[in-house]
Design a binder for these strands. Sequence first.
RNA 1: GUGGUUGUAGUUCAGUUGGUUAGAACGCCUGAUUGUGGUUCAGGAGGUCGCCGGUUCGAGUCCGGUCUUCCACCCCA
Length: 452
Amino acid sequence: MATSKPSLPKGTRDFGPEQSAKRSYIIDTIKKNFLKYGFSQIETPAMEQLSVLTGKYGDEGDQLLFKIVNSGDFLKKSNTQDYEAGSGQLLPKISEKGLRYDLTVPFARFVVMNQHEITFPFKRFQVQPVWRADRPQKGRYREFYQCDADIVGSNSLLNEAELTMLIHDVYSDLGYKGFVLKINHREILMELARYAGLKGKEMPFCVVIDKLDKIGQEKVTEELIGLGANESKLADILNVFNFIHDNISKIALIENLIGSNRGSSELSEYFNYLNAYEQGELKIELDFSLARGLSYYTGIIFEVKATDVQIGSITGGGRYDNLTGVFGMEGTSGVGISFGLDRIYDVLEELNLFPSALAQSSDVLIAHFDEQCMYHGLGLLQKLRSSGLRAEIFPESTKMKKQFNYADKKDIPFVLVIGSDEIANKKYSLKNMKDGSQEMLSIDQITEALSN
RNA sequence: GUGGUUGUAGUUCAGUUGGUUAGAACGCCUGAUUGUGGUUCAGGAGGUCGCCGGUUCGAGUCCGGUCUUCCACCCCA
C-alpha cells in the first residue's frame, strides 16, 4: 500500500494530553453544575435520519448539514436522470443519514420517541460533539462540543431563572468573570419590527438588528429603511437600545414605546424570580437588540458573551414553545442552554484561567538498575497503587539517565530507585525531583510520605 | 456558498532581482557523567520547501489548479 502524508479534515483537531485534561476540566465543571440543578444525562447517536435533521435549521442550516452516503453501492437507487436533475433530486437517493447539527433537535426526537417513559418536566443534559459544514475560522470548527441542558414540559419562567443561576454557577466555578449574560424576548423583537412598520418582515428585521454592535447604528438604519422601515419610528427604537439603565427600568421604557405585551410581562416575571434567589451581582443585561438565530426560539432568549476576548457567543439558549410539534407531539414547551466548550476553552486559555494542577502525571515513578530490580519493583508498584497513589514503573531496564529524564518530562514529582542495596536493606531511595533531595525509606514510609 | 490570506526541520521562523550543497533558535539523539533528571559543554540526526502541473538552461522564489490555515461576508457554539 502506498504511503501518504496523514492529515485531518478541515476544521477538525486532535487533542493532546494537556488539551484533553483542560477540556475535561471544563466538561467536569459544567456536568457537576448540571447535576447540582437536577438534570440527568442522556446520549444520542452521532448520526440521525436526514428526515429528522432537515428543515429544522432553515435553508442555511440544511446546507451546513454533513450528509452520509448510503452504505454499499450508494448509487444503486439513483439513475442518470436524478444526476442531471441536480443535487436536490439526487441527494435523497444516495443519502439517508446525516451527522447531528446540534443537540436540541435530537433531544426533541428523543422526547417524542420516549414520551411515555418520561416524567415531565423532564430535565436532561447532554455533552456531545456536533458537526457543521461551516467554513472554519478562529473559534469556529466543523466538529465541536455542545454542553446542553434543557427543561421540557413546563411553561414556568422559573426554568429560565434556574438556567440563569446555573450559568452564573458554571462561570463562577471556572473562575471567569468577564462574561455578560444578555437577555431578550422574541416577542419584543416582533413587536419592535411591527412598530417600525415591518409587519411580515419580522425575521429580516431581527437579522439586521443582530448586527448592531458589529456594523453600527447608521448601517443598521440604512438597511432597515431599505426593508421599508419608518425612519422616525426607527429612531425611537434605536433610542431605546441606547438607554443605559437597570433592567427593570428598561422594561418600563419598552412598554412605554410598544405597550405591554407577552414579552415585557414575561421578562418582569423572570426578574421577579431572580430577585427571590437573593443572590446579588448577577451579570444580566437586558438587551432589546439581542436577536439570536435559530428559528425555533419563541420566548426569552439569552446569550453569554465574553467581554474581554474576541470570540463571539460562548453560551446561548432560549425558549421554544413547540419544538416537538414537527415530530407530531404538540404543546410541549421547552427552554434550554448550550455551553460552547471549544470557545470557553479558547477564552480560558487566552486569559490563563486554567488551574495549574491539571497535569495528569503519576505521583511516583519506579526506576531500576536491572531486570531483577524491575521484577522486585512490581511488588512495590502494587503496594503504592493499592494505597491510592498514581504510580508507574519504567517498563525496560535501561540507563538511569533515561528513566529520570522520563520522570522529568512527565512532571512526575518523585522517583523511587531500586538497586541491589535497596533490595537487600528493604529501603529504597526516594528522590524529590523538585528540590533534588533524596532519602532511604521503607515502602511503608514511602506510601506514608507520598499520601500526604 | 462568495471574496481574500497562509503553508520552508518536531516547533517558531529566516531565505536577496529566479542561480552552487535551503539556514537559525528551541526541541530531539549521543557523549562529557560505570547509581540520578532539570544547568553547562562537545558532537550528531532530522527537509519529496503542503500537493499536482506549467514557464525557464535553472523554481523554496514566477504562473495555474488543489488541499490547509486565518480573515471578511452569510450564519453560528
